[in-house]
Design a protein around this nucleic acid. Structure first.
Length: 195
DNA sequence: TGCAAACCATAAC
DNA sequence: GTTATGGTTTGCA
């Protein structure tokens, strides 16, 4: 039986679907309803679920981590995610996306170069990300540094990136297994958006 | 700039 | 099996 929790922190709703120690899905949004339905829609098969109101200790710590990430801060503790129910390619893309640090972005195409497949296939994985914002799909933008899409709305994606500004000056590459991933300072995106 | 064609993993038929 | 669908990219006018 999976446990699902919904909680409001500083005017944002967060939800967690989990076992005793592991995360199956997370999300956040403006309303309790959409947050809950988002999370429920990412639960694989039809695993039985109970929605609880009093958070377990594990849920409490998970909410704290979600909020830390949401605030644009470094999360020192990591949550363990249940991914074996997801397709292999999806797992690879989510894993590489997780390697993008706060303060940097990458692009759909750059991730495709790192893991194989096409930019559009990567976009499809982002759109279906069950672990928002733990897997930082908000740090994936188009190759011209415009925003691309975001489930929670582009405004939300932009605010996220603003909070993650770190002032890094240069792009860099990090090595993934046998390949590399290109990273760019968030400022490359923010600078472009002077309207 | 704008548009068409190529791209490729998934989910839905 | 097959098809339709993208949170894209690239090339060319």
């Amino acid at each position: 039986m999976l446990e699902v929790y919904v909680q409001n922190v500083d005017n944002t709703w967060f939800a967690i679907a989990c076992t005793q120690q592991k995360i199956v899905a997370t999300s956040f949004s403006r309303t309790q309803e959409s947050t809950l339905s988002n999370t429920l829609s990412n639960i694989p098969f039809n695993m039985p679920v109970q929605v609880l109101h009093e958070p377990s200790n594990f849920a409490k710590s998970a909410f704290a981590i979600l909020k830390t990430i949401y605030d644009g801060k470094e999360a020192k503790n990591k949550l363990s995610l249940i991914t074996h129910t997801l397709p292999a390619y999806t797992r690879k893309v989510l894993k590489v996306t997780s390697a993008i640090p706060v303060g940097y972005v990458s692009s759909y195409g750059a991730i495709a170069k790192a893991v194989g497949g096409s930019p559009r296939a990567v976009g499809n994985v982002m759109a279906a990300n069950p672990f928002v914002p733990i897997v930082p799909c908000h740090r994936v933008v188009k190759s011209d540094f415009t925003l691309g899409g975001y489930g929670g709305g582009l405004e939300t994606k932009l605010e996220f990136l603003k909070r993650e500004k770190r002032g890094y000056p240069y792009p860099k590459k990090i090595t993934i297994n046998s390949g590399y991933l290109e990273l760019f300072p968030v400022e490359f995106v923010l600078k472009n958006l002077t309207l």
